[in-house]
Design a protein around this nucleic acid. Structure first.
Lengths: 247, 247
DNA sequence: CGGTGACTTGAGCATCGTCAACATTCGTGG
DNA sequence: CCACGAATGTTGACGATGCTCAAGTCACCG
């Protein structure tokens, strides 16, 4: 079973066995982090690029009055900061939420991939563009949807992304995040997140229990959240990703 | 005087005279659009990539209940959809707000730039990454700032971007957008935009008159909006952009 | 002039935030 | 294994921010 990183890139390009092997080799050396540790801070110009292999991290930015906005949830297989291979300075911070395994990859290695491995390079570019598409959808979420739908939409997205890398089963996936942190991601107060979550549970749509999200009725949740996964740009539909097929 | 496109790329890479000439040649053939015309729609897989040379366009997405969210304001020099050179399908639409001049560039031309003009390629990649940084800042804006500060912050950003391409003078720049459209960009109702704008005017910070934004006190507005232009990643400070200097 | 689109204003209401108290869970050390 | 404390989740009351509806004004243009 390939790791989450290889699985994710495979969603965006037709990797050859050599490509797969090459990528797997890159993720051999893993670093273990605890919860609430900073990977990079705003203003840093790090040597390495970071990749999440396991666990959960967030991209976030803090305003002057101390409000923290989470701008991305980084799941297994996600790059944290591929852009600093091009732009020098970080304009935001990245921290773990849970115990997390990361891989540190030197900028040089990235440049080598870009120059000598066109398929991988293409996949990397795709993931960057999809990150942007996800960000756009989050903006729509904050700007145009009220709290219950907003939360439901986020859960739909996370389910789709987790399922695509093989980390969701039966509508259930791991999400070790507090209600307060959910609020920081969704632009809502903790109390309001709590009330909205209970409403979603009462409506038999989703439930967040412990560190897991359990979707009770996927079709109804998709309809309720107005969820359309097009923006994730998977090559294959997540449902059929297990069977290899050619279009 | 180079056009807005060349000026903008010059903010992100040290273009040689040949690069400049090459880019200028690409923007010879211009297409004129009226206000409220669609450039591309969600679901399209267009042949060409589009570039705004003059005027104003928006990236937007509409939810099921008809609410429209504007996810980006495309100023002169901005690419609309560079990503569809990689990802096939548009997951959002692009429309003009005012009379606008665009350039249609074939995907092949982009690929040629990427393969044969490393400096330009690097600049293009940078602009894409900065687009993402701007999007992140918009997310912070919607998630963590109340209406007056939210509007002020947007005006600060637009001023910085306009000034960087030579389209702001004396704190004043053109912004042919209605209050309703401003609301669509900021996740606010038209009425609330109106009231917030009047409060900003009463505070002698900024005024929107006709199709222009007039900043009355830039320093105070920056402070009020908590504006920090780092996320725009200009190579040189906009203020000193006219003098060439080496770091 | 008449009409259309943009802006302005007021009143009432919905959504969501704040504060404060309380309940529950979980990890830790006794 | 129990006891404790800290972090998280839950609930109620109240207030603020922002939305809706509706009417009216203003500027622009045919």
């Amino acid at each position: 079973m390939p790791n989450a990183f290889v699985r994710k890139l495979g969603l965006y390009a037709d990797l050859s066995p050599e490509d797969t092997e090459h990528l797997t080799a890159l993720t051999k050396v893993v670093r273990d982090l605890g919860p609430n540790e900073d990977l990079i801070r705003e203003g840093d110009t790090p040597e390495n690029v970071h990749l999440v292999l396991n666990g959960l991290a967030v991209r976030h930015k803090t305003t002057v009055d101390g409000t923290r906005q989470i701008a991305a949830l980084l799941l297994p297989g996600d790059f944290c900061d591929l852009h600093i291979a091009i732009l020098d300075t970080m304009d935001h911070s990245i921290s773990t939420l849970a115990p997390t395994q990361v891989v540190d990859i030197p900028r040089k290695t990235i440049l080598d991939l870009v120059n000598n491995h066109p398929t991988i390079s293409n996949a990397l570019l795709s993931t960057t563009l999809v990150d942007e598409a996800i960000l756009r959808e989050w903006l729509v979420n904050l700007g145009a949807r009220r709290s219950e739908i907003r939360i439901a939409h986020l859960f739909c997205e996370l389910h789709a992304r987790m399922q695509a890398i093989g980390l969701a089963s039966n509508g259930t996936f791991s999400l070790p995040i507090t209600q307060a942190q959910l609020g920081e991601a969704l632009g809502l107060s903790t109390v309001h997140v709590n009330r909205s979550l209970m409403a979603l549970k009462d409506a038999n749509l989703v439930r967040k229990h412990d560190r897991q999200v359990e979707i009770l009725d996927l079709n109804r949740l998709h309809a309720f959240a107005e969820f359309d996964p097009t923006y994730l740009h998977f090559r294959k539909a997540p449902d059929t990703a297990s069977k290899s097929m050619r279009a």
